[in-house]
């Protein structure tokens, strides 16, 4: 009674040890470290038949076949395989493609991004804006969203110089707020190492949308009132997104807001275009490209995700 028990214990210990060592070996072969995203249902080292990993997809034709069905099958109902004419291609290392799984999935997730932005291409007036974007990812590369911005202004050095040196008062508008409906597409995806230590994934995405911008005339003579314009504003842009956590990314980008703005008419005085309404009716129009640099932090909802593909 003692020997069989000892033998069973020994065998059991060998099996368990082999299983544990096997798991250890597998684990060491994975691209791991603290950066790796843990998978639900990944091995606990017990070797027991646990629940099927929800992350795996069942393949057609795979899995255990019913033995009785196999035995009952007609042995003549087979297809003879021609092994003589098959082209034999040796497998080389070039046939084996190793692709690192994306560390971040966006599909069916919402991205809430507060951001700050500033003007890049106006040498008279610089706008600073605080805003937010709300984007929903239909796929991993396509998103639809809305954005809103509130602007503040700062006059730049040439605004004063033109007045003092050239004795000219510039005609400029400031922007109050804008809103847009946008589509985003992600064509470029990559990863980089920082100081040869830490890997960070990133991507580049393009944005196109349409919205409205409210601009306000800055009167050359403060005695006369200003007027507002509500402008249809298409926009295009390119941005980069850096993936820091499952729930947080950092975005930087450039956006071009394009609109036909209406400016204070030349010659406005006590006798001409005095009231804002008349001035607005006689406003001068010009096509404006308001190029803004944006930086923001995205919070992703839900904050986690699960893979539905093989590792």
């Amino acid at each position: 009674m003692v020997r069989p028990s000892t033998l069973a214990t020994t065998l059991g210990a060998i099996v368990v040890s082999a299983t544990i060592l096997g798991w250890g070996g597998l684990a060491a072969a994975q691209p791991g470290g603290d950066d790796e995203i843990e998978m639900d249902g990944e091995g606990d080292g017990s070797g027991s038949a646990g629940p099927v990993d929800e992350g795996e997809i069942e393949m057609d034709g795979e899995g255990e076949k019913d033995l009785e069905t196999d035995l009952a099958a007609d042995p003549t109902d087979t297809v003879k395989i021609d092994t003589t004419s098959r082209e034999l291609k040796p497998v080389s290392w070039q046939d084996i493609v190793v692709v690192m799984r994306k560390p971040f999935l966006k599909i069916r997730r919402t991205d809430l991004m507060p951001f700050l932005s500033t003007t890049m291409n106006d040498n008279m007036i610089r706008h600073y804006a605080a805003g937010a974007q709300f984007n929903y990812f239909l796929t991993d590369v396509l998103a639809v969203g809305v954005e809103g911005q509130y602007y503040t202004k700062q006059f730049r050095e040439p605004f004063d110089l033109v007045g003092r040196q050239a004795r000219r008062l510039p005609t400029i508008n400031k922007y109050n707020f804008s809103a847009a409906l946008n589509f985003h597409y992600v064509p470029v995806y990559g990863k980089f190492a920082i100081l040869d230590q830490k890997l960070v994934a990133w991507e580049t995405y393009f944005t196109a949308g349409v919205g409205v911008t409210q601009s306000e005339v800055v009167p050359r003579d403060p005695r006369f009132g200003s007027f507002n314009n509500l402008l249809i504003t298409p926009n295009i842009g390119a941005s980069m997104r850096f993936f820091l956590f499952q729930w947080l990314t950092v975005n930087v980008g450039i956006r071009d807001y394009i609109f036909v703005d209406r400016f204070e008419p030349v010659g406005r005085s006590d006798t001409m275009f005095t009231s804002p309404d008349v001035a607005k009716e006689n406003a001068d129009s010009a096509l404006i490209n308001n190029v803004m640099f944006q930086i923001g932090v995205s919070f992703w909802i839900p904050p986690t995700f699960e893979y539905t593909t093989f590792r």
């Binding site: 995806y189 980089f192 920082i194 890997l199 990133w202 580049t204």
Partner: peptide, 19 residues
């Protein structure tokens, strides 16, 4: 040059880059 990496455009064209 603290950052280097690689990127794929449209999942096809793989190129190396650095900042």
């Amino acid at each position: 040059t603290p950052w280097y990496g690689k990127m794929a455009a449209f999942g096809k064209a793989y190129v190396n880059f650095d900042f």
